[in-house]
Each structure stands twice: as structure tokens, then as C-alpha cells.
Amino acid sequence: MTAAPQNTKAGAEKIAVTVSAVVPLNDLVTRFEFTRPDGAAFPPFSAGAHTVVEMRDQGRTRLNPYSLMSDPSDPSIYAISVRRDDQGRGGSLFMHRNVKVGDAMTLTYPVNLFSLDLRGRKHVFLAGGIGITPFMAMIAQLEQSNGNWELHYACRSEALGTYADQLRSHYPNKVHVYFDDQNQAIGLEDLLDGQPLGTHVYVCGPKGMIDWVHTTAAEHGWPSENVHSEEFLAPQPGKPFEVRLCKSDITIQVGEHESLLEAMERCGVDAPFLCRGGACGQCETDVVEADGEFVHRDHWLDDDDHACGKKIMPCVSRFVGKTLVLDR
């Protein structure tokens, strides 16, 4: 139909925020709290959602997703807890070193890839280390609705047990903490055994822990639908690349954080689109020449199309390599 004019931003909507508190919790983890400069309420969110924090780090933009860990019923703040990763790509170091109270930052609207199954009769949370953060919001949400939950939380040591004391004192009967350095471990098999029908298990932590929970639950006859883990699909930026558009007779640069479609629009090329999500097929574009690898992310083209490299969907897909010429 195309009832344009439209506002043609891609990706999740953004929210301007001010850093309202920076609270070091232990040697590794710091909580950052945000408010809105205009004093407006934040959009509500569902427990398990994350936000993508945009960091301006000396001319380069970093985009890191963090679970929202504040109480979803409190619209006045958003909070995240960030574990410093000295070996990582630098986002968490930037947060720890550079972000100060009063700084202006940008967050995306919440996106939830780890939601509660609201049909659950009982919710069992299994956290490893910083994996505790989404459960902080889930616990707050379930407490509001009198949900039935329990938490099993494995941390390295008492000193690194982020929020462990707070949780234990608030919910002494529901929270179980295990310290590695005291040779304590979650007794998963016993835990899975004997849970009432309709129980859901949620795991957030290191990959090994997630795999262990899925495998053990399957061995004990648990349906996969009842075992949830966060699949962290970070937003999908990519390396900048150059494209020649032969009909328009221009060569354009696609930046790290924009899509090929957005780059074309920025350069004044009138490119078709409807969904901007790789589903409708409108933006399908013929490839004239390519020397490199396509990063196809659409649901429109089939596997053969993806393999043969003759077509690309500019709203979501990218390219890595030397030359790309499109029939546009």
C-alpha cells in the first residue's frame, strides 16, 4: 500500500537519558541509573528486556546491550549493572572509566528476548555471576503479581556476589546462593527432580552453564519449551563498506551503525521498502558485481538466493569485501 510519508528510522527507537547515579557494587560490577532529562516517565518494560547503550568513545560509537535490572513498575528510572571485562571489546571498560553522573547518553527502547512465560505455575531462576541482572527485574515483576518463584545463584565469592546479600535478606526463603570458592554448586539434578508440572526454568550466565542446564533438563524429560535462556542477539552493526550504485551513478559508504538501505536514503537514492525488517521483499536489489562475502540477514530470499550472491535485501543485509556493485 505504502501510505508514506513515513519517518524512516531503522532499528529500535531511542531515548535520551541522563546518568543519575553510578554505584560501584564490588571490584567488578557497577550499577548505572538513568533518568530522562525532560523528567518524563520511561516506557514501561517487561522483565527480561535489555536496552542497547550507545557510547561515544572518542569518535567511535559503541553499542552494548545490557539487561534492564530496575523494577519494571518504576517508570522514573532505568538501571543496568555492568561487569568490567578487561579482555572485552571495550564497552564495559568505557562505562566503568568514562561514564559520570550528569552525562547525557542514549538508550534504545527495551527489547525482550528473554521474557517470562506468564503461564508458568512456578519460575525457577538459575543465575551465574553477572547473569543475575535480568532476574532482578523478573523477581520485582513476579513479586507484584504474587508469582511463585525461587532463585539459585552461583557466584565466585562472597565479595563478588552482586546483589546476593540484598536478595537473601529480602527473600530468605526463596533465594539460594552458592559460592564457588567455598565449593558450593547448584545441585541441578535434584532441583529439576520433583518440580510441579508447569514449572519453567530460566538460566542466565556463562555459555557452559546454559548448555549444562539445557542438556540436564532434557535428560530428565523436561520439554524444551519449559527451559529458557537469554540468547543475546546484540544489535547487528557491521564493518563499514563501500557500494557502487550503477543506475544512480554514485558510490556510497555504509557506516558501521546504519543499514545499506539507510545509507542509500542518506545519499538521496530513492530505494523501495516497506517493512525494513527483511520480510516483505520490497527492497530486493540485484547484484551486478561482487567480490567479497554477503552477510544475509533477511527472511525473504531462500537459501539458494543467498548462496548464489545475485541478490541482496538492503534493509538488513550487509557485505564484507572489496567491491560491491548494485543495480540501483
Binding site: P5, L274, A279
Partner: peptide
Amino acid sequence: FPFPFHEDSYMYSVNMEQHRGGPPGS
């Protein structure tokens, strides 16, 4: 009236677009 045909024929398609406004009065 939201006339649904943008051309002289019709077939099912994934005809989805963003819902971010449209011409005033539409």
C-alpha cells in the same frame, strides 16, 4: 477510505510497512 489496491491486480503478499503516521486526515 483505505482503498486497498495499489495496482490493477491483487495477490496475497507480505504487505507490511511501518505504522508511523500518514497524510493528514487519512
